[in-house]
Deep mutational scan, measured.
Amino acid sequence: TFELKGKVGKVVKIAEDHYLVESEGDKWIAYSDEKLSLGDRVMVVDVDGLKLKVKRIP
């Protein structure tokens, strides 16, 4: 299986209740415990079905 946990991506869209993150050339629906901005670099900390939980990284 394709393992996304630990992968790095970038926030490419902000929606009302989720983010769109591009990682490894694909776009994924993501959510975070912190507020993210367009262009933020993020790391995948968990995968919930087809949704990614991400956190901001420097």
Rank of each mutant, 00 (worst) to 15 (best):
T1P: 15
T1V: 14
T1I: 15
T1E: 15
T1N: 15
T1H: 15
F2M: 15
F2P: 15
F2I: 15
E3G: 01
E3K: 01
E3Y: 02
E3F: 02
L4P: 15
L4D: 15
L4V: 15
L4S: 15
L4I: 14
L4G: 15
L4A: 14
K5R: 02
G6T: 01
K7T: 13
V8Q: 05
V8G: 03
V8N: 04
G9F: 07
G9C: 15
K10Y: 11
K10H: 11
V11A: 02
V12T: 09
K13W: 07
K13C: 13
K13D: 12
K13H: 06
I14H: 07
I14V: 11
I14Y: 09
I14R: 07
I14T: 11
A15I: 08
A15R: 10
A15V: 10
A15N: 08
D17Y: 10
H18T: 07
H18P: 00
H18R: 09
H18M: 12
H18W: 10
H18Q: 09
Y19T: 07
Y19I: 08
Y19N: 03
L20D: 07
L20H: 11
L20I: 10
L20G: 06
L20V: 08
V21H: 01
V21K: 01
V21W: 15
V21Y: 06
E22G: 04
E22L: 10
S23E: 04
E24D: 05
E24T: 04
E24I: 03
G25D: 05
G25K: 03
D26E: 09
D26F: 14
D26I: 12
D26H: 12
K27Q: 06
W28C: 03
W28R: 03
W28A: 02
I29M: 09
A30P: 00
A30E: 00
A30G: 06
Y31T: 13
Y31G: 11
S32C: 12
S32H: 03
S32P: 03
K35L: 10
L36S: 01
L36E: 00
L36V: 05
L36H: 03
L36G: 00
S37T: 10
L38P: 08
L38K: 06
L38H: 08
L38V: 08
L38S: 09
L38E: 13
G39D: 13
G39V: 04
G39A: 08
R41P: 12
R41D: 14
R41N: 13
R41F: 13
R41T: 13
V42G: 00
V42T: 04
V42F: 03
V42S: 01
V42R: 00
V42A: 06
M43T: 11
M43P: 00
M43D: 05
V44G: 02
V44Y: 03
V44T: 02
V44S: 02
D46S: 03
D46Y: 03
D46N: 03
V47K: 02
V47Q: 06
V47G: 03
D48C: 14
D48Y: 12
D48T: 08
D48F: 09
G49N: 10
L50F: 12
K51E: 12
K51T: 14
K51W: 13
K51Y: 12
K51M: 12
K51S: 13
L52I: 10
K53G: 11
K53S: 10
K53L: 12
K53M: 09
V54P: 00
V54E: 00
K55Q: 14
K55S: 14
R56C: 12
R56T: 11
R56N: 06
R56E: 06
I57P: 05
I57T: 07
